[in-house]
Nucleic acid binder design. Sequence first.
DNA 1: GCCAACGTTGGC
DNA 2: GCCAACGTTGGC
Length: 152
Amino acid sequence: MNYWLMKSEPSAFSVDDLAAIPGKTTGWDGVRNYQARNMLRDDFRVGDLAFLYHSSCELPGVVGLLKVVRRGYADPSQFDPGSEYFDPGSDPHAPRWFCVDVKLKRKFGRVIGLEELRRHKPLRNLRLLQRGNRLSVMPVAKAEWDFILSLE
DNA sequence: GCCAACGTTGGC
DNA sequence: GCCAACGTTGGC
């Protein structure tokens, strides 16, 4: 069982947007970074849990809990000329980009803010807090996971 | 809006 | 393979 953190800009897609979807499930598409792609394709498993993180907003931080409900599959948006994520260079027989399906398990009662996360020693190695980190999808260690959950 | 930090592109 | 130029991310 793996633990993850998945970033989203709430102006584009927020925890409340997800909560409003029937079944609270969505395809996590549009990831266009090879490191993140490799994790979505190879490492995500059904039943894995993930924090949903809001970035580029007034209060960046962890806002809820997701569960992986479908393992990596070809991201349909790469083949859709109407999509902002369209990638004409991707071969349908060897797709370049992958996504998973996630379901919202729970929206937190409050935002566990980035600044707050930085204050805690047990999180000093959290990938999110490392210099220059830009991954939109990243692993979280079990100890870090448990610690962040205890903050809510 | 600024800017640091990183990824990607493409000429050579 | 090198590396300069450019684009993107994301906190502030």
